[in-house]
Design a protein around this nucleic acid. Structure first.
Length: 402
DNA sequence: CTCGGCATCCTAT
DNA sequence: CTAACGATAGGATGCCGAG
């Protein structure tokens, strides 16, 4: 087990690449990757942000996460493409299917990333680097987009390696390469070291991953919790024992959030949004045949501050109206009436067995609600969510370049 | 002292 | 004119109160 061989495969500018490929397949002559372009929300919506950008767009100083309106100011010719998750799911599936041919032990890490455990395959694939090239070239030639492959003795190193130079590259990060390839990098580049952690480390005069690697865990304990201190120390030294997990784990929570175009100031509007959200969350619980004990409302006030208020209920539920009623109660308890820019709803504390149990007391009202929910679910599955609820358009980030 | 519940923070795609 | 800005999820952490 000491000699694992792990690959991490990452699609380069995933959403944009996939859009470009799709358009070329549909007879368009323009390759989005060759002009300033990005995937983002509706430019008319002030709340839409740049999700993935092309390399030419990057040259205009457009960065991931910035408002689309802002990006258009930097480059008026910028082509903004709305996200198409149907397409991304399809592309993702095709991409993962090819990789699956090389090993059964594969973990989907996100829509455009996988870990592959290639341990003990020396006889089949004697040269891992050659194999990685073969995989990435096959994806490029058969599917039309490029990927990076990172190779290491664990997931962390493979992941760090795939993030090195892009696009269309294979990199290794073996134990004897860690000092040369990883230690010179800024701490913030370490997977799991985000903005806040990086800031604290820099205050401790720890600027590079190498400096972090050389810092004792006990020193880190002065600033970080036990888990974080341990993780940071190990990660900086390239230590990671986490296995590549095959089966997808069950969700621990289900949540929806909507950023509104105009601030919400009245309870009526807030309730309306909560109802739509309760319906979405309820539908997803029912689709997964689970129930939730805890309902939480989340809201964001004008000053961008997030607030949450939740409660564990006596009985788990998957019923829209019950979720809604709870949400309204929680909202009443916690919202003081400040203008809200975001309202969200989360169901957690998942009850896996709850779905099986029939209602012992034969509550007719509950049965009615269930039937109503079922009817709505049917409409949704036929015509899509928009037929029942028209919520804000979400835009995911498909890469995280800074 | 430990555990459950809750709010918030942090990180990731 | 400070502050740009989404959705979703998992884990950590700190606090508080109950047993």
């Amino acid at each position: 087990m000491n000699d694992r061989l792990i690959f991490h495969v990452d699609v380069n500018s995933a959403f944009l690449s996939w859009e470009a490929v799709d358009r070329l397949c549909n007879g368009e002559t323009l390759d989005l990757r060759t002009v300033p372009s990005c995937v983002g929300g509706d430019p008319d919506r002030r709340t839409s942000i740049v999700s993935t950008k092309s390399i030419p767009a990057k040259k205009y100083g457009i960065v991931t996460g910035e408002p689309v309106a802002n990006a258009l100011r930097k480059c008026p010719d910028l082509i903004v493409v709305k996200p198409n998750f149907q397409l991304y799911k399809k592309m993702s599936h095709e991409f993962k299917s090819i990789l699956n041919e090389y090993t059964p032990l594969m973990q989907s890490f996100s829509i455009d990333e996988v870990f592959m455990d290639m341990s003990g395959m020396e006889l089949l694939y004697p040269d891992p680097i050659k194999l990685a090239h073969e995989m990435k070239d096959r994806i490029r030639d058969e599917l039309g987009f490029t990927v990076n492959v990172g190779i290491g003795r664990n997931k962390l190193c493979a992941k760090m390696a795939s993030d090195f130079e892009k696009p269309d590259k294979v990199h290794t990060l073996f134990p004897d390469e860690i000092a040369d390839k990883m230690w010179p990098l800024p701490v913030g580049e370490l997977f799991g070291c985000g903005e806040s952690t990086a800031k604290k480390l820099i205050e401790m005069h720890i600027k590079t991953i190498g400096e972090l690697a050389g810092t004792s865990e006990s020193l880190l304990l002065n600033v970080f919790g036990e888990k974080s201190a341990h993780y940071l120390h190990n990660a900086a030294n390239g230590i990671d024992d986490s296995p590549v997990i095959n089966e997808e784990r069950e969700a621990k929570s289900y949540s929806v959030e909507n950023t509104t175009e105009d601030d919400v100031t009245d309870f009526e509007t807030a309730s309306h949004i909560l109802l739509a959200e309760a319906d979405i969350v309820g539908g997803r619980l029912r689709a997964d045949e689970v129930k939730a004990f805890t309902i939480t409302v989340i809201f964001r006030t004008g000053d961008m501050k997030r607030h949450s208020h939740g409660r564990k209920m006596e009985n788990s539920t998957d019923i829209t109206s019950e979720i809604y009623d709870t949400a309204v109660m929680l909202m009443k308890e916690s919202w003081k009436g400040e203008p809200l820019r975001l309202i969200g709803l989360s169901a957690s504390d998942i009850d896996k067995d709850g779905f099986q149990q029939m209602s012992l007391f034969g509550e007719e009202e509950k049965e009615k609600q269930k039937n109503l929910d079922k009817a709505l679910d049917k409409i949704r599955s036929k015509y899509g969510n928009d037929s029942v609820i028209r919520a804000g358009i979400g835009v995911f980030r498909s890469d995280r370049r800074k």
